[in-house]
């Protein structure tokens, strides 16, 4: 059943209300610069707007939204890699993060946590955020394209790395 333009717009607005904060956290783990984070969030919602027409309810709406959001974030990080090589990119993210870190006193701050997650490799970063958002292993596998077993293995590895990262500065 095709939605009319106003229904489509309404659906989209309810998605913005529901997923605004969750998708900002996704954007923030892929981009350290606060200004570009907002741009990335807009790009993510724009991609969701464009993709919504192809949503066929074969998967749940939140799996669909996270899939589009992560693909947009991956496209963003790929574009960033044009400006710097891989090592410089990682180093730069780490450097920008530690600058901001010095101003953060509470180690439990969600921003601090986002910054630390941002230091993980891309796929591990994705799995950690999805896990924190309460997404099941099956849905994580559907979003990332990994097998359920592989999701478990990579997620455990990511959790160990994250724990070490959190211990290093706190």
């Amino acid at each position: 059943m095709r939605l009319s333009m106003s229904e489509y717009q309404q659906d989209f607005e309810s998605i913005i209300v529901k997923y605004r904060l969750s998708l900002f956290k996704v954007a923030a783990t892929f981009e350290a610069d606060p200004v570009i984070q907002q741009d990335l969030l807009q790009e993510i919602f724009l991609a969701i707007w464009q993709a919504l027409a192809s949503f066929k309810e074969q998967s749940s709406l939140h799996t669909f939204i996270y899939r589009v959001a992560y693909n947009q974030a991956l496209t963003h990080v790929t574009k960033q890699s044009r400006k710097q090589n891989y090592d410089e990119l990682t180093e730069n993210i780490e450097c920008q993060h530690s600058d901001i870190e010095s101003n953060v006193s509470a180690t439990k701050s969600v921003e601090y946590l986002i910054r630390k997650i941002g230091l993980l490799p891309v796929i591990e970063r994705q799995l950690v955020v999805l896990s924190l958002e309460g997404i099941s292993y099956n849905d994580m596998a559907e979003i990332s394209g990994l097998s359920v077993t592989n999701v478990g293995v990579q997620l455990n590895r990511a959790k160990t790395k994250l724990k070490k990262l959190l211990e290093r500065k706190s």
Binding site: L21, P34, Q42, L113
Partner: peptide, 23 residues
Amino acid sequence: SWNENDAEIDKKVLSEKTLIDQI
């Protein structure tokens, strides 16, 4: 801490209306 500190994040993110307008 991920789920309980949304108020902290909320201040940093563009409002729903601004997001809809910009898109």
